[in-house]
Amino acid sequence: MPRPLNAAHLTAIDLDPPHFIEAAAKAGFDGVGLRLLRVTDTSPGYPLYDDLAMLRATKAAMAATGLTVGDIEFLKVTPDTRVADYEWLFDVGADLGAHHLITAPYDPDLSRLSDTLSALAEAGTSRGVAIIHEFFPWTNVPDLATALRVVEAAGPEVHLLVDSLHFDRSGSSLAQLAAISPERLPFAHLCDALVAEHYTTDELLFTAREARLAPGEGQIDLRAFVEALPDDLPLSLEVPMVSADGPEAVLGHVCEVTRNWLAQGA
């Protein structure tokens, strides 16, 4: 059975949620992730709680296409993060039927980070929205080993998100990835990229936000990465790239190339 494929919003971030869902469905994806929080000054977020017309249009697009919202993203966990400030985020996620809220590590105190993740997980439980924590090589949680320690300290309800780009850039171990309990890994992010011996922080950020490639178009050992994941684990394609043909064409290209690439490895 083919792995379920979702489209992460960053792949076509300039499309608002209703248009993104429609374009993802046309491209052939099974579901989407939605970015409800603005992450950078140069990329949008779509909170939806303050735009009821867009929320209704988003739900209408879901109903019309049959696509589900697997996750919402992403909350930067800082020393000042308070659960009460994000009750709305869980509510909107639950309204959309999302199963996970992606969080990111921006607290240098890893013990406090784990405590905050635990508190967020408790808040999400009643809404059916679990916490899934992602690591980035330019943060204080730069690799899989550190991320695993953080989520294990946060408790069994906090999941781990592994992105093939960040995994490759961090020098993390395939053996350690294969050894992680499947219960910690509800889905993974997949993309390809060119590979170099060293990266500056600016290079890491630029590739992550603007210059990824579809699977098989770069140099990451994605076969080994996918083989280390649990069988049939859902994959979310996060592949931002510049295209003169527009975001809809990017989604179509990424979905087609990925399905062909997965079929070749079956």
Rank of each mutant, 00 (worst) to 15 (best):
L101Q: 10
A154Y: 11
L96E: 12
P108M: 04
V83Q: 10
G155L: 11
Q176C: 00
H189P: 02
T68M: 12
D109Y: 08
E87L: 13
H133R: 10
D91T: 14
L120C: 08
E197F: 11
T139Y: 06
R127T: 07
S114K: 06
D115W: 07
D109P: 13
D168L: 01
A121M: 08
E134N: 10
S170Y: 04
P108I: 06
F135S: 03
T81C: 04
A175H: 04
A98Y: 08
T78G: 05
T116I: 11
V158C: 03
H189K: 03
A119I: 03
V151D: 07
G128M: 11
S173L: 01
P156I: 11
D115M: 11
W88N: 13
D107S: 06
S114M: 07
T200G: 13
E183I: 08
W88I: 12
A179W: 02
Q176M: 01
T78I: 02
L75R: 01
D115S: 11
H99T: 14
Q176P: 00
A175Q: 06
A123G: 12
E152P: 02
S172C: 00
T81A: 01
D107N: 14
D109V: 13
D115N: 09
T78V: 04
A121T: 05
V158S: 06
S118Y: 02
